[in-house]
Amino acid sequence: MLKPDLRRSSPAPRDKTDETLLWLKFREGPQEVFQELVQHFYRELYFYGGRFTRDTDLLKDCLQDLFLDLWVYRHRISDTPYIRSYLYKSLRRKIHREILRQPSAGRDDSVTFDDVSSQEITAEQALIRTELSEYQTSRLHELLAGLSDRQREAIHLKFYGELSNEEIADILDVNKQSVANLLHRGLSRLRESWPTLLSFVLFHLSNSLNR
């Protein structure tokens, strides 16, 4: 199940020393470290996985599977230098497999990334604290909706996952140059629309101040 190609993950310099230490400790086995490791990655991976599906049960099952695999195979995957890209890649594969297995799955064999529709925003609203960030979030989702699936995912892996372009290329199964292009075009597009977002925010802010 674990492909040998994981072993030659790029050793790009990374300042996540703590994470690497954690991983080194975990390879030696103690169960307490496993808990720390799960704790460290759970929220972040839940967020990533949530871009593919709104079925939270499916998502939790996949995450559980992912971490239990990590536990069961810890001796075998101990050659993986960077646990981070391994987790992202494995989770993505598990979720894709589960989604495509469902009878209602997409006819065209594809899985959408970050389907930023109004429904999702509503579901998230409960968790949003202030009016301003709520507004910002919904605007941001509008902007993200203007990007392609792959652009959104590349940006996610870069920004939230902080993976190297090589690692992203491996996950998306494209070459490194394509990743650079996806990132550059996606982020440029966001940036171009950004002043609008900003001015809306400022307008909104001054409006609420005047109230």
């Binding site: 929220r43 839940y46 968790l127 920004f159 900003l198």
Partner: peptide, 13 residues
Amino acid sequence: DMAEALRNRPVPL
């Protein structure tokens, strides 16, 4: 600013 907006996206968990 863009980074902050991205970072503030809520995780529904």
